[in-house]
Every structure is written in structure tokens, then in C-alpha cells.
Amino acid sequence: MAKMTLDQLRKLREEKKGDMARRETEGKTIQIIVGMGTCGIAAGAKAAFDAIVKTVDESGLTSQVVIRQTGCMGLCHVEPTVEVVMPGMPATIYGRVDADVAAEIVKKHIVGKTLVDKHIYDRPAVDIVKK
């Protein structure tokens, strides 16, 4: 593969336009936020981020999902952390998210609307989380 030029990148994007029609943040109802502070980076948040991008793309969810990076969410002891906010599900912060768990979050939480139990660290309350 040779170096891609910006024009080639633009062309690739045009080709993908069909499935990227609704690309703007408006109209997207699902947010996935990955903590990229010192703690997240040290714990491997980049691998979680990459797995989320890949799984969202492969699952055809691109038009519905906004993927964001933020700093530390305050849960440094269970990094990497990933917050998911979407209609019909409680806003949830997942911890100890490696690449596999990240893919599981997309498939279970977003597609299946089921919580990924063993990785919930905030919201909803601990008493409703299954052991």
C-alpha cells in the first residue's frame, strides 16, 4: 500500500457515502465514551477504543453511534472505562474493558439491550447488578 493522499481519502469517503449518509452527530442517539486520561491510557484504553470502532462499524451501527474520547472519569482503579448512554437503557459506566469486553458491550448492551453485568462500576446502583 502506498501513501494515501488527502484526495484519495476524500474519494474513499465519497464511495462510502451510502452507508455514511447520516454522519453528523444530530440524529445519532447512542453515545459511547472512552476514558483516555493517564489511567485509561496506562490500562489499555486504546485497545478498547479500537475494538469499539471495529465492532460498531461491522455491526452496521455507524449511523446511530457517536464515539467519543474523554479524560479521566474518576474510576482509575478499574480502567479502562467506557460509558454508554442510549435510549431505553440506563446510562452505564463499564470498567475493566479490554478489547473483548468492548466488543461484548457493543453486541450486548447496544444491540441486545442487556447489561454486561460483571463490568458495571457506576449507574445503575450496585443492588440491581447481578453477581
Partner: peptide
């Protein structure tokens, strides 16, 4: 400018390839 906002999985994948 080429791929749009980097909050979109497809845009991120294209930027990654670039």
C-alpha cells in the same frame, strides 16, 4: 475536512487507514 467528524466509526476507520 476529508472524512467529517471523528465521532463516527466509519470516519475513524478511514482516518486510521489514511
Amino acid at each position: 475536512d476529508a472524512v467529517g467528524p471523528l465521532s463516527d466509526a466509519a470516519s475513524i476507520a478511514l482516518a486510521d487507514a489514511f
